[in-house]
Design a protein around this nucleic acid. Structure first.
Ligand SMILES: [Zn+2]
Ligand SMILES: [Zn+2]
Ligand SMILES: [Zn+2]
Ligand SMILES: [Zn+2]
Lengths: 158, 158
DNA sequence: GACGAAATGATATAATATAACACTTCAATA
DNA sequence: TATTGAAGTGTTATATTATATCATTTCGTC
């Protein structure tokens, strides 16, 4: 069993640093401006491995003393989702940081209802099954949402 | 190629009748009351194979002369979702009628962005891939959302 | 430094969803 | 059949999520 979710005692500072570093690269590659506001929102999202809502981000910004309004947050989110630096969990109306923004991947998200963490899987069997099922019924796929809710290994153990 | 989506010229009255009939049976089996309001909402949802939002339902009810408020609609929706007579599309905040409420199935929805129709697939490969992926990472699944957006066969042809 | 495009600020409002309490309906049963 | 208690619905208010619009600022290019 390999746990998708990061170890309890892991050095999360490294997660954040790495995510910021990768984000810079992706933005650069896309000729997109990784502005201050966008970086702030991105960093807030990466404060944990949980999904966070737009208004939680707004509160966090305001707590930092930034005078932000909803559109500011939603714009940053739109930008970050566009570059696939973050993903949106439709069933939670919330966002979390992608830890492999460079690799093209079909999003498959495991969401723990207990600890709130979200982990992303890249599973070729699942991707293939979706493509095959679509092929059989002549459906032209444009986007796929796969959200799996339950208990992560840690939380299931307790 | 077998099209998941109903034929353009199909007799939709039969879809509605059949859905109502099955709903009666499911409600009965669950000792649940398929009240007038619930039947009305259910019937409205089944007016088409598209997904419909809570407020569209509310408007439709009001157009029928029913003095309904949001809670009324949301309660009916909660009831119907609970019995799996309808499903919610998270990425659309909308609902559509299940055409096999009797069989236990993992929801896998194909959503056409052009015609708006939703069709449900029951694909064992997909289900198995999800279960396997979860098993590998020690995740205990409680609910799964699979929403595939794109163009249905008919719409892709034009 | 002037210019135009992109980003952000600011205000208002739309769209989606639920809380709380009053009233009604309905089936069980005393 | 009258009582009663749970389930369902009505009603009002409000919470949560998201976007439209226009003004202002920032920033790279010329
Ligand atoms: Zn971490
Ligand atoms: Zn957990
Ligand atoms: Zn039909
Ligand atoms: Zn279509």
């Amino acid at each position: 069993m390999t746990d998708l979710f990061p170890d309890k005692g892991h050095d999360h500072g490294r997660c954040i640093d790495s995510a910021l570093h990768q984000a810079e690269i992706v933005a650069e590659a896309n000729n997109a401006r990784f502005t201050n506001m966008r970086r702030r929102v991105f960093t807030l999202i990466w404060q944990s491995h949980k999904a966070i809502t737009a208004y939680e981000l707004l509160d966090a910004l305001q707590a930092e003393g930034v005078r932000a309004q909803p559109p500011t947050v939603y714009r940053a989110l739109e930008f970050l989702v566009g570059l696939r630096l973050i993903h949106r969990i439709e069933s939670l109306n919330a966002y979390f940081g992608c830890d492999m923004p460079d690799c093209e991947h079909l999003g498959q998200y495991f969401i723990c209802r207990n600890c709130g963490r979200v982990a992303e899987a890249v599973n070729e069997d699942m991707s293939r099954a979706v493509r095959t099922a679509a092929g059989i019924v002549g459906f032209k796929i444009e986007a796929t949402t796969i959200e799996i809710k339950g208990l992560c290994h840690d939380c299931a153990a307790h």
